[in-house]
């Protein structure tokens, strides 16, 4: 890789990193304002407005908010149940804020798990997510197939005593590709997903179908291929009897031979990573 390409890549990555930072800042700002009685709809609107104010015009998907046992997707049967409801936040309840804004043409997709007050169980889940972050990066660098990695994550969850809740996402994905999106004046959403982003995902899917890969990282046969270069929004989601926790952030996969460079997390300065590092000190 020439230095020109590298610097170009870096500039591009910087764009993604900025929007990811912006999203996490939004999550932290909204989380700080959550108090007992706030509904999921209100929390979703708070995220939307915070991001609109900072120049976000389009979405990969509009912000979600899940409270209480909805963080573990208890009794989720149809995808419509992902949308925010009038569930009210109570003391001790876990919550998840999940948003995917497009900013200056760059997309981020993040998930922020928190809890209103003390909840030792939720702390435990958050702490245990660390092993998943390390496992995923390690195995992507080893160029295992995505399906294999998915199954290994699954096994780790079972060993930890948790249920795999990303299975509830559309196609059961643990991750999906994200990309740049052309900015348009008119940016409608379809079932909460930005049409521009869906178009990108669909064309990736089509291309991938011809070349034997998929932009969706699932437990199914179409993910039985080594990681493809690009940006993956990875979102392992643990569930334990009515309490759920996840993180979601961008994993960069390149075609570099150097294992360190072949895959890396876009940014290590994120709330959940900081939390683990502080805990370790």
């Amino acid at each position: 890789m020439t230095s020109a390409v590298a610097s170009e890549l870096t500039a591009e990555l910087r764009g993604f990193r900025e929007v990811q930072q912006l999203s996490y800042a939004c999550a932290e700002a909204v989380a700080a304002q959550l108090k007992p009685g706030v509904t999921e709809r209100q929390a979703a609107r708070m995220q939307r407005e915070w991001l609109y104010e900072r120049g976000v015009k389009d979405w990969f998907h509009r912000p979600f908010a899940w409270f209480g046992d909805r963080t573990a997707f208890v009794d989720f049967k149809i995808p419509l149940q992902f949308f925010p409801t009038d569930r009210r936040l109570e003391a001790g309840m876990p919550f998840i804020l999940d948003m995917a804004p497009v900013h200056k043409g760059y997309t981020a997709d993040i998930g922020y798990s928190g809890c209103l007050g003390l909840n030792p169980l939720h702390d435990k889940l958050l702490a245990d997510l660390r092993d998943h972050r390390e496992l995923i990066l390690r195995e992507v660098r080893e160029r295992r197939t995505l399906r294999e990695i998915y199954e290994d994550v699954d096994r780790l969850m079972v060993r930890q005593g948790y249920a795999n809740r990303h299975r509830a996402y559309p196609f059961g994905v643990i991750a999906h590709k994200i990309d740049r999106v052309r900015e348009r004046r008119f940016a409608p959403t379809l079932f909460g997903f930005g049409t521009q982003s869906l178009k990108g995902l669909a064309s990736d899917a089509l291309r991938g179908h011809r070349d034997g890969w998929s932009p969706l990282w699932s437990p199914y046969k179409f993910s039985d291929h080594p990681p493809t270069p690009g940006l993956w929004a990875v979102e392992p989601h643990l569930g334990f009897r009515g309490t759920g926790a996840k993180f979601e952030e961008i994993l960069v996969v390149t075609d570099s031979r150097d294992p360190e460079q072949s895959a890396f997390w876009l940014d290590d300065d994120l709330p959940h990573v900081r939390r683990w590092n502080e805990g370790a000190v």
């Binding site: 209480g68 046992d69 309840m93 909840n119 169980l121 009897r241």
Partner: peptide
């Protein structure tokens, strides 16, 4: 105790 809360939430 967290018991009651967790219990109430997971039914």
């Amino acid at each position: 105790r967290p018991v009651a809360e967790t219990a109430a939430r997971s039914g």
